[in-house]
């Protein structure tokens, strides 16, 4: 029997576990028919138990996994996801792509490296996706897009086409990254943060914070 552990307390974890049969049926038909046990791996299990799901502590998971087990990390913060991936690296379990069954994936060449993809997203001819990528609902990733490791994208993010998103980038909800061309892709540098609702039309240097004009807070 194999176990599937969803690591993290993000609400998406609960949703994904609820529809796990559909997710596996779409993307891993062989796993869907096997006998298996699904658990939420978290040190803070109240949400999972409140939703009637089985929970297990991180240490316990690392100590008890075998090579027939799979995991995905749903933690909204990229750095936290990276830290968790370091912890579970020592276990024998393999990463699994958790693609919500309402998401449409077309003609993609990328390998599953623990990507977690939320509801109603659309991926078309995406070139590559790195380790433990995570995105919210209604995101759109267009042709020629390359996404690095531990990248986080919020709800409704659009990467139109030919965009290179480097490692540890965070794109907040509703931000739009305009299309590059096949010859000169648009590049979002390592560790950059794109704030909510921003429209990015040019390269973003590594570590930069890009935001649309916002209200000045009175304080």
């Amino acid at each position: 029997m194999s176990r599937i552990g969803i690591i993290g307390t993000d609400g998406l974890a609960l949703d994904l576990l609820t529809v796990l049969d559909d997710t596996l049926g779409t993307h891993y038909p062989s796993l869907a028919t096997q006998e298996r046990e699904d658990v939420i791996v978290t040190d803070d299990p109240w949400q999972a138990t409140a939703a009637g799901l089985k929970a297990c502590a991180v240490d316990e998971w690392v100590a008890t996994t075998t090579a027939s087990d799979f995991f995905a990390i749903t933690e909204g913060n990229g750095k936290a996801r990276q830290a968790l991936s370091e912890i579970v690296k020592s276990s024998a379990a393999r990463p699994l792509a958790m693609i919500h069954p309402t998401t449409e994936v077309r003609g993609n060449k990328w390998q599953d490296m623990g990507a977690v993809i939320g509801q109603y997203s659309f991926f078309c001819d995406v070139e590559s996706i790195g380790q433990h990528f995570m995105c919210g609902a209604f995101t759109i990733f267009g042709p020629g897009t390359r996404v690095g490791n531990f990248v986080t994208a919020g709800h409704r993010v659009v990467c139109e086409a030919n965009v290179i998103v480097e490692d540890n980038v965070t794109i907040e909800q509703s931000a739009v990254i305009a299309a590059g061309t096949a010859g000169t892709p648009l590049r979002i540098g390592t560790g950059a943060t794109i704030k909510a609702g921003t429209f990015v039309t040019a390269d973003v240097p590594a570590g930069a914070l890009v935001a649309a004009p916002r209200k000045e807070h009175e304080s």
Binding site: G11, Y120, G136
Partner: peptide, 21 residues
């Protein structure tokens, strides 16, 4: 989402998400 609650006569148009909590 799993852990959300909604009241009477809610109207939600397309492409929306009532997420966690």
């Amino acid at each position: 989402s799993v852990n959300s609650t909604v009241g009477r006569s809610l109207l939600v148009l397309g492409a929306s998400l009532i997420g966690q909590n």
